[in-house]
Design a protein around this nucleic acid. Structure first.
Length: 941
RNA sequence: GCCGAAGUGGCGGAAUAGGCAGACGCGCACGACUCAAAAUCGUGUUCCCUACGGGAAUGAGGGUUCGAUUCCCUCCUUCGGCACCA
C-alpha cells in the first residue's frame, strides 16, 4: 500500500522555493568528486547576491586561490603560526583562564587526547544488529494479551513488496515506531505489527516480461524487505506478520466476499473497462498511454468494453460514512471523504419518451426550474439512445458514440472543451407542462453520475445555457431576481441566472420565492417536491457522487473471487469448507497480458454447489484494496484457521488506537476500510462503528530534486546505504527531524550530518571518563530545571506527533549537559538524574544507542525499553526569576529580571524604574502600561 | 471552476492562550587542532544603513489591537484532491 505510484507527471516548473531547491541540488551533485568547482560556484552565487560583505570575502578567496603567489604567502603565514604554536606548547598546557587545578587540567588534556578513541568505540554497525538480535531472542516486542494493562493498537500502513525499502517507507514508519515505543513506556501494552500487501499488478507485469512466477518474485522480495525492515530497529511483532498473497490469508479475503454476498452487498452488473482489442486484455489506467489513449504494449487505440463485473454496495453506507462522530481523524481527510461522497438533495422526476412511451428518470437538485426544461440530454451510453434515435439521425449518433467512448472521463471533462452533442430525433414530454422537448446526447452527461440523463434548463444552468446557445435551442426564464420583477427578461438571457428570486412562467408556482439554499431549505424546491409527490410525477430524492465499489479485476495476481456459475442455478458461492479457492501454479504467461486464469485448461472447471452438475469458476480476481481493508484484523492472529481472526485477540486489541499513513489514501483505502468495517458489523462479525479511532497522516518525502521519488526519475534514496554509513538510530532521528511530519519535504542528503553529530555527541557525553565535581561552578537546580522542562516538552510533542521538536529539545538538553559537565556536574545526584531521564527520552527515538548506554555503560537493568516513562516534576521545572522584555511603543528597548512570582505592580514598578526606560520616556508620563504575565511589559507613551 | 493544505533567512524548520520573530539543525565563513586533509572543538551567520547606534522584515495590501507569523477582509503564488456532478 505504501507505494510511490504517480498518476501524473509534474510538468509545471515552479517559480518559488521549489526551483531554488532544485538549483541547490544541482550544486550539491557537482560537489561529489569535484569539491573546488563546487566551492567556486558557491562563491560566485554569493557575488551575484550583491552583498558588500560577501563580495569582500569572495574577492579575498579569489586572490588566495587564483594567484599562486598569494597562495604561497598564505601558506607561509600559516607555517610561521604553526611554529609559534609548537614553541608555545609547554606554556599552553597550563590553564590560564579556567579556575581549575593543574592536576585537573592535565586530566582534561588526557581526556582530550583520548577523544578519537571514544569516537571509534561508537560503532553502530556492530552495536545495532547485536541489540536487534538480543531483543528478538528475548521476545522483547512480542505483544501478548494482558488484561492487567491498557492495550494500545498502533498501526502503520503496510508496504507493497516492490523489492526494496526506500525513504518513503522509513518516513511514515520510524516516527510511528517511536511513538508506539513512547506509549509502551507509558504503561500501555502496545501492538505494533507489520506485513505485506502482496497482490497487485507490478508482480504480474514482471511475470509477463520475465516469466518468473509472481509468487516466487513476491516471496523473494518479501525476504529482502523483511531484512531491511529489521534494520530499522522497530518494535514490530514479527510473530504477527501477515502476507496477503498467502493462501492462509486470502482464504479469509474470499470468506469475507462470501459474507458480503450473503448479506446482499455483492452484486453483478455491466460496467465498461478500458480494453485493448489486439491484446484481448483489460487495461489499468496506468497501462493506457498518451493523449490518443493507446495500449502500453502494442500501441493499439484503447476501446471501452462492457463487462459484467462484481460490485459492493458501498453506496448503502453513504450516509453513515459521512458521519465521523467518535473518531479523531484529520479534518482534511474528513472533508476529502465528505466531498468524495458528495451528497446532494433534490428530486427524481419521470419524463416520458414520445416514441415507445418509456419512462426516463432524471435527478435534479432544482425541481423548481422544471418549467424551464426545454430539452433533455442523455449520456451517449444511455440504454434508450438506440431506441429513440430516428433513422435519419442514426449515422451521426453512432459516430458520436464511438468518439465519446474513445475518451477518458478526464478528457470528457476538460475545462476548456467546447460542448458538443447530437440530436437523436426523439422527443420527450415534460411532465409538469406537457411540453414536447427534443432529446440530445452529449458527452458532458456521464452515465456514472445520477441516472445518465438530465433535463436541461438553459436559463439557469451554465452548461445547459452554453449548449442551448450553440445548437439554438429555446431558453425559458423561470427564476427572476426579485429586484427585476417588473423588468423584461431580456437581460437575464445573456447568461444563465443562478441565484435567489421568484418563480415565473411556472403556472401555479408563479411568485414562489426561491433562495440559494439546498434541498428542503429552499422554499421553491420544497413546494415543488411536495406537488410532484402529490401528482405522482416525481419524489424527493438524494443523489451521491459516490459509486459502488467495482472489485472485479481481469488479472491473475489477486485473491480469487470464490463464486461458481452453473447454467441451471446461476452464480453461487463456493461452500465455505472448500475455501480457499487457490490460484493455480501451472500457468502460462502470454506477452499480451491476458489473464492466465482464463487460459488455464482445467482450473475453472468445477461442480455446482447446488446440483453437483458442471459449473465454471469466476476467473476474475479481487481488487487489492479488498485485501488491505481488513489486514488490521489478520495481524491479530495471522495463522488462525477457524476464522479470519481469533475472537479473543479481537476483543482485547480492537479497535486500532492510532493509524498512520499517507494522505493519498484518503478517498480510497481509508474509505473502503471504513465501509468494510460497517458491512462486517452488520454481518455480525465485528463490533463498533469504526475500525480506527485516531488517524494521522504524514507528508511525502520528495527526491532531492523536489520531485516525487521514483525509480524512473532516478531520485530514489535507499536507506540501506545510509544505515551502513550512519546507523539506524541516526536515520530514524533524521526521519523525525528533517521536516514537519505531516508536511514532508524534499530529501536533503547533507542534513543528516546534524543528527549524526548529535548521536555521536550523546555517545561521547555518556562514555567520557568523568570526574566528581570539586570547586564547582555547577548549578544543580538549573540542570534539574532544564531536564524537567525538556521532559515536559518531549512528552507533549510525542502525544501530538510533533516529532521534529522532540529532537531539537533533546539536542538543546544535550548542549546544556555538556555545559554542566564542564562546570563539574559529574557525580552529582542531579547529573545522575539527568543521565537517566535523558536515556529514557532517547529510547523511543534511538533505541539501540539508548540501550547500549543504559545497559552497558550505566550498568542499569536491561532493558531500557521496559522502563516506565520518567515522572515530570513540576516544582523542578519552575523558574526562579524571569527576564522580561520592556517595549516602548511596540519596540523592545530594555530587559528586566524579576522573580517568577512577582506581582503585576512589582513588575510595572521595576520596568518604570529602569534607567533605559526612563531615558526613552524623556520625562513623559506613560499613557498605559500593560503587563503580560511571564511575557513582557508594554509601555505606551 | 470547486474543495482542502500551505507561503517565515542560502536551506529544513521553531515560536503554550495575540506578547522578545528566526529555537534546533544543515550550509557557509573564520579560528583552534593537524605536515596536510577528514573528523572534532570554538566563534559568527535575516536584510539594509551613515554601523559605538538605528531601521526594515514572517507571500502582497488593508483592518482589529498597546501589541499580529498567530484573528478578520481582499488579492497573489504553490502543493494535493475532485471536476461539464445535473
Amino acid at each position: 500500500m505504501v507505494t510511490t505510484k504517480s498518476k501524473k507527471e509534474t510538468k509545471k516548473k515552479t517559480t518559488t522555493k521549489r526551483t531554488v531547491k532544485v538549483k541547490k541540488a544541482e550544486t550539491v551533485k557537482k560537489t561529489i568528486g569535484k569539491k573546488p568547482v563546487a566551492k567556486k560556484i558557491a562563491s560566485k552565487t554569493k557575488v551575484t547576491k550583491a552583498s558588500a560583505k560577501t563580495k569582500r570575502v569572495a574577492t579575498k578567496k579569489a586572490v588566495t586561490t587564483s594567484s599562486p603567489k598569494g597562495k604561497r604567502t598564505a601558506s607561509k603565514a600559516k607555517a610561521v603560526k604553526a611554529i609559534m604554536a609548537v614553541t608555545e606548547q609547554p606554556r599552553a598546557v597550563i590553564p590560564v583562564e579556567k579556575k581549575q587545578s593543574t592536576i585537573q587540567a592535565v586530566m582534561e588534556t588526557k581526556a582530550a587526547k583520548s577523544e578519537p578513541k571514544r569516537d571509534i568505540s561508537f560503532n553502530p554497525q556492530e552495536m545495532e544488529p547485536r541489540w536487534q538480535k538480543k531483543w528478538e531472542m528475548d521476545k522483547l516486542y512480542r505483544a501478548v494479551i494482558d488484561y492487567s494493562k491498557p492495550k494500545f493498537y498502533a498501526l502503520t500502513m503496510l508496504p507493497y513488496p516492490s523489492g526494496d525499502l526506500h525513504m518513503g517507507h522509513w518516513f511514515p514508519m520510524t516516527p510511528s515506531d517511536a511513538r508506539a515505543r513512547f506509549m509502551r513506556m507509558n504503561g500501555y501494552n502496545v501492538l505494533f505489527p507489520m506485513g505485506f500487501d502482496a497482490f497487485g499488478l507490478p508482480a504480474e507485469n514482471a511475470a509477463i516480461k520475465s516469466g518468473i512466477h509472481p509468487m516466487k518474485r513476491t516471496r523473494d522480495n518479501i525476504v529482502r524487505m523483511r531484512a531491511q525492515l529489521r534494520s530499522m530497529g522497530a518494535m514490530f511483532d514479527w510473530e504477527r506478520e501477515a502476507v496477503s498473497c498467502e493462501p492462509e490469508y486470502y482464504k479469509w479475503t474470499e470468506w469475507f466476499f462470501i459474507q458480503l454476498y450473503k448479506h446482499g452487498l455483492a452484486y453483478r452488473k455491466m460496467s465498461p473497462v478500458d480494453f485493448c482489442p489486439n491484446c484481448n486484455t483489460t487495461l489499468a489506467r496506468e497501462q493506457v498511454w498518451g493523449e490518443d489513449r493507446h495500449c502500453e504494449r502494442c500501441d493499439t487505440p484503447v476501446i471501452k468494453k462492457d463487462l459484467e463485473q462484481w460490485f459492493f454496495k458501498t453506496t448503502k453506507y453513504a450516509d453513515e460514512l459521512l458521519n465521523f462522530d467518535g473518531i479523531d481523524w484529520p479534518q482534511t481527510v474528513k472533508t476529502l471523504q465528505t466531498n468524495w461522497i458528495d451528497r446532494s438533495e433534490g428530486a427524481s422526476v419521470i419524463f416520458k419518451t414520445e416514441t415507445g412511451n418509456h419512462d426516463v428518470e432524471i435527478f435534479t437538485t432544482r425541481p423548481d426550474t422544471l418549467w424551464g426544461a426545454t430539452f433533455m440530454v442523455f449520456s451517449p451510453e444511455h440504454p434508450l439512445v438506440d431506441e429513440i434515435t430516428t433513422p435519419e439521425n442514426k449515422a451521426a449518433i453512432e459516430e458520436y458514440k464511438v468518439q465519446a467512448a474513445r475518451q477518458s472521463d478526464i478528457q470528457r471533462g476538460a475545462v476548456d472543451k467546447e460542448k458538443t452533442g447530437v440530436f437523436t430525433g426523439g422527443y420527450a414530454i415534460n411532465p409538469v407542462n406537457q411540453a414536447r422537448i427534443p432529446i440530445w446526447i452529449a458527452d458532458y452527461v456521464l452515465m456514472s453520475y445520477g441516472t445518465g440523463a438530465i433535463m436541461a434548463v438553459p436559463a439557469h444552468d451554465e452548461r445547459d445555457f452554453a449548449f442551448a446557445k450553440k445548437y439554438d435551442l429555446p431558453i425559458i426564464e423561470v427564476i427572476r431576481p426579485e429586484s427585476e420583477v417588473r423588468a423584461t427578461s431580456e437581460s437575464s438571457l445573456q447568461a444563465a441566472y443562478i441565484g435567489a428570486g421568484v418563480m415565473v412562467n411556472s403556472d401555479q408556482f408563479n411568485g414562489t420565492k426561491v433562495n440559494t439554499e439546498k434541498g428542503r431549505k429552499n422554499p421553491g424546491v420544497s413546494a415543488v417536491i411536495d406537488w410532484l409527490q402529490e401528482k405522482g410525477i416525481g419524489k424527493e430524492s438524494v443523489n451521491y457522487r459516490y459509486r459502488d465499489w467495482l472489485i472485479s479485476r481481469q488479472r491473475y495476481w489477486g485473491s480469487p473471487i470464490p463464486m461458481v456459475r452453473c447454467d441451471i442455478h446461476g452464480w453461487n458461492p463456493v461452500p465455505e469448507d472448500q475455501l480457499p479457492v487457490t490460484l493455480p501454479e501451472d500457468v502460462e504467461w502470454k506477452p499480451t497480458g491476458e489473464s492466465p486464469l482464463k487460459l488455464h485448461p482445467t482450473w475453472k472447471n468445477t461442480t455446482c454447489p447446488m446440483c453437483g452438475g458442471p459449473a465454471t469458476r469466476e476467473t476474475d480476481t479481487m481488487d487489492t484494496f479488498m485485501c488491505s481493508s481488513w489486514y488490521h484484523l489478520r495481524y491479530l492472529s495471522p495463522h488462525y484457521d477457524r476464522g479470519p481472526f481469533d475472537p479473543a485477540e479481537y476483543d482485547y486489541w480492537m479497535p486500532v488506537d492510532t493509524y498512520t499513513g499517507g494522505i493519498e489514501h484518503a478517498t480510497m483505502h481509508l474509505l473502503y476500510t471504513r465501509f468494510f468495517h460497517k458491512a462486517l458489523r452488520d454481518a455480525g462479525i465485528v463490533k463498533g462503528d469504526e475500525p480506527m479511532l485516531q488517524l494521522r497522516n504524514q507528508g511525502m518525502v520528495l527526491g532531492e530534486d523536489g520531485e516525487k521519488m521514483s525509480k524512473s526519475r532516478g531520485n530514489v534514496i535507499a536507506p540501506d546505504i545510509l544505515v551502513d554509513k550512519y546507523g539506524a538510530d541516526t536515520v530514524r532521528t533524521y526521519m523525525m527531524f528533517f521536516a514537519r511530519w505531516e508536511m514532508g519535504a524534499p530529501w536533503d542528503s547533507q542534513g543528516i550530518e546534524g543528527p549524526a553529530r548529535w548521536i555521536r555527541r550523546v555517545w561521547n557525553l555518556f562514555t567520557d571518563p568523568t570526574q566528581p565535581a570539586s570547586d564547582s561552578a555547577f548549578d544543580g537546580r538549573q540542570l534539574r530545571r532544564r531536564v524537567h522542562q525538556t521532559l515536559r516538552k518531549v512528552t507533549h510533542d510525542f502525544e501530538n506527533f510533533e516529532f521534529n521538536t522532540i529532537i531539537s529539545s533533546l539536542m538543546e538538553l544535550m548542549n546544556e549537559m555538556y555545559k554542566a559537565r564542564e562546570a563539574g556536574a559529574a557525580g552529582s545526584p542531579e547529573w545522575k538524574e539527568a543521565q537517566d531521564i535523558y536515556l529514557h527520552m532517547l529510547a523511543p527515538v534511538a533505541p539501540h544507542i539508548a540501550e547500549e548506554l543504559w545497559t552497558n555503560h550505566l550498568g542499569k537493568t536491561y532493558s531500557i525499553h521496559q522502563q516506565p516513562w520518567p515522572k515530570f516534576d513540576e516544582a523542578a521545572a519552575k523558574e526562579d526569576s524571569i527576564e522580561l522584555p520592556v517595549q516602548i511603543n511596540g519596540k523592545v528597548r530594555d530587559r528586566i529580571t524579576v522573580p517568577a512570582e512577582a506581582r503585576e505592580e512589582e513588575i510595572k514598578a521595576a520596568a518604570l524604574a529602569s534607567e533605559t526606560v526612563r531615558k526613552y520616556l524623556e520625562g513623559k508620563v506613560p499613557k498605559k502600561v500593560i503587563v503580560a504575565k511571564g511575557r513582557l511589559v508594554s509601555i505606551v507613551v
